[in-house]
Design a protein around this nucleic acid. Structure first.
Lengths: 182, 182
DNA sequence: GGGCACATGTAAGCTGTTACATGATTAA
DNA sequence: TTAATCATGTAACAGCTTACATGTGCCC
């Protein structure tokens, strides 16, 4: 299991103890814009973390589910993982791949791709702004706020940049096409 | 083999016939900022494309290497793949994951992460500007230019946005920390 | 003749998703 | 009572990288 998965799980449990199922929901709903874990990752990883003494499993009595809680050792491990240098896997961007070879399609389909991206980014931007408002008003997690907001701010900056880029590129492709037609 | 790999290979060969080795070099050096393929992908994919009649293999006589060339059917397939909707794999951003759980580290290590990202983006930006100049002066690929430039422009926009975000976030974390110290 | 770049290919292994199996609890 | 949600887990598979094996041609 990759250490990133351990990091995400320990991070999640550092905020609140919860079941494996809830953990996955939290990862999807809260940090889903820049992270994801599937059940196939989470349960084996939880086993490993329990085996290492980083997480404690509190068996639910009959009816209730198990709750996983981070231990003191787990918090130490979390800090360790947070400091570990990033191993960046090669980026793959299917939209850019398509645009790069766009001459095989002509400008119109490419403009369509760009407009789809612009619209998606516009929607994202609205979402991020709503999340920002929510975090800024969250009294319960005052200490976390500034850190959480950096990730929201990242989303906002990237969405804004995407919108500007898409607009500009749509113009460029349209004008290049007119120039050819003359 | 994923269709994206087929797309990248057909795209590459649509510009110029070349060996599998050269193809990998081209993918790494030319579209490496947003795409990657390893030998373990390229050679089996080339076999598949040859079997499907999308690519022709011209055996090199003794000493020289094989040259792979796209066929008319291959160009059709390329256009088909370019129009195919994107299947986006979930994004994973290790830096954001670390920043999100940054409260466990405190502001200083987070500022360091941000400054690393800022510096990397600054370097990238310079690179993209050099590539832009190169493409704008390339008489041989006039038709491709506008499409290629959209991908360079993407890099520029993202790098600029990253720099702005990192600066702003470093300030925010520093100020939040001072506010706490009062 | 020794090292390096070019060239083709394969096998092992890692990461991660999807789909399935199974069952409890809750709400309609 | 039946459907949905919560919950845990596994097996199969897809995608991709790394490392290795193997060989050629070129340059110092």
């Amino acid at each position: 299991m990759s250490s990133s998965t351990h990091l995400a799980i320990l991070g999640g449990l550092s905020v609140e103890s919860m079941s494996g199922y809830a953990l996955r929901e939290a990862i999807r709903d809260v940090i889903g814009h820049f992270w994801s874990e599937s059940f196939g990752q989470i349960y084996p990883a939880l086993d490993e973390l329990v085996a290492g003494g980083f997480v404690e499993r509190q068996e639910g009595s009959r009816s209730t589910a198990s709750t996983f809680a981070i231990t003191a050792l787990g918090r130490e491990r979390l800090r360790e993982l947070l400091r570990e240098p990033l191993v960046s896997r090669p980026a793959r961007n299917g939209s850019l791949l398509r645009l790069y070879f766009g001459v095989n399609l002509g400008p119109d389909p490419c403009v369509e791709i760009l407009d789809d991206l612009r619209r998606a980014a516009t929607k994202q931007l609205q979402l991020y702004r709503a999340i920002r408002t929510e975090i800024e008003g969250d009294e319960e997690h005052r200490a976390d706020g500034p850190y959480w907001l950096t990730t929201v701010s990242y989303g906002e900056h990237m969405a804004e940049a995407t919108i500007a880029w898409a607009r500009q590129s749509m113009d460029a492709l349209t004008i290049a096409d007119q120039g050819k037609a003359e």
